[in-house]
Simulated assay, not measured.
Amino acid sequence: MTTITVRQCSTWVLPSLIAINLVLTAGCSGKPATARYSASNMGSSCYAKALPTSGEGGLAWGNTLSIARQKSLNNCIRYAGRSGGTPSTCQVVLSQCRH
């Protein structure tokens, strides 16, 4: 008799758990998607771009022009080294602040 009860119970438990799971996840999917990070780092108003003679360069944003220039130079050195370029030749070619 217990075998019949266990079989009957197992036939409705799994579908019930799946249905509850779907209902709970469907409730969360109705929320609008929000971006966590902006491409320009919302508060940063200055940007700079540094390029090596060969390889990939780097673009960076910062609160001040000097911070943006330093970050872009660091990115250029890192990316040029990874791409088989010449990190020692990185130079800032563009830097300005938005108004």
Results as ranks from 00 to 15, higher is better:
59 L>G: 00
88 S>K: 02
33 A>F: 07
9 C>A: 15
46 C>W: 02
76 C>K: 00
58 G>V: 02
86 T>M: 05
36 R>D: 08
79 Y>R: 11
33 A>H: 09
48 A>P: 10
8 Q>N: 15
14 L>E: 13
93 V>I: 11
76 C>R: 03
3 T>M: 09
98 R>D: 15
24 L>K: 12
7 R>D: 12
38 S>L: 02
17 L>G: 15
22 L>T: 09
75 N>S: 06
16 S>N: 00
55 G>T: 07
89 T>M: 10
7 R>H: 12
52 P>R: 00
47 Y>L: 01
2 T>E: 10
73 L>M: 12
57 G>D: 04
71 K>F: 00
54 S>Q: 06
36 R>I: 07
42 M>A: 08
43 G>N: 13
24 L>F: 13
12 W>T: 11
12 W>Q: 08
4 I>D: 13
72 S>D: 01
22 L>S: 08
93 V>M: 03
22 L>M: 12
33 A>E: 12
82 R>Y: 05
39 A>N: 13
39 A>C: 12
80 A>W: 07
65 L>H: 03
78 R>G: 01
31 K>E: 14
85 G>L: 11
78 R>K: 05
20 I>T: 07
43 G>W: 15
94 L>R: 03
40 S>E: 15
16 S>T: 13
24 L>Q: 14
50 A>P: 05
73 L>F: 01
38 S>V: 08
28 C>Y: 11
93 V>Y: 02
93 V>G: 00
56 E>N: 10
96 Q>M: 11
96 Q>H: 04
12 W>G: 03
89 T>P: 03
63 N>L: 07
93 V>N: 04
64 T>H: 01
12 W>E: 06
26 A>R: 09
58 G>M: 01
81 G>S: 08
91 Q>T: 08
50 A>E: 10
57 G>T: 02
66 S>L: 10
43 G>F: 15
42 M>S: 11
32 P>Y: 04
35 A>I: 11
91 Q>I: 08
95 S>F: 09
72 S>V: 00
82 R>T: 10
9 C>H: 14
1 M>K: 06
75 N>W: 01
93 V>A: 00
25 T>S: 12
70 Q>R: 02
40 S>G: 10
52 P>Q: 02
52 P>H: 03
77 I>F: 05
33 A>S: 14
1 M>E: 13
83 S>Y: 02
85 G>T: 03
72 S>Y: 00
4 I>N: 06
58 G>F: 00
8 Q>L: 15
30 G>Q: 12
52 P>G: 03
31 K>L: 15
86 T>H: 05
70 Q>W: 00
30 G>A: 06
63 N>Q: 06
59 L>C: 01
76 C>V: 01
6 V>N: 03
57 G>L: 01
88 S>H: 04
3 T>P: 06
3 T>Q: 12
48 A>K: 01
79 Y>F: 14
48 A>L: 11
31 K>D: 10
59 L>D: 01
12 W>P: 05
53 T>W: 03
97 C>P: 04
57 G>Q: 05
61 W>C: 02
17 L>K: 09
77 I>Y: 02
53 T>K: 10
47 Y>W: 14
47 Y>S: 04
11 T>C: 07
80 A>K: 09
7 R>L: 14
53 T>C: 01
99 H>G: 09
17 L>W: 07
73 L>P: 00
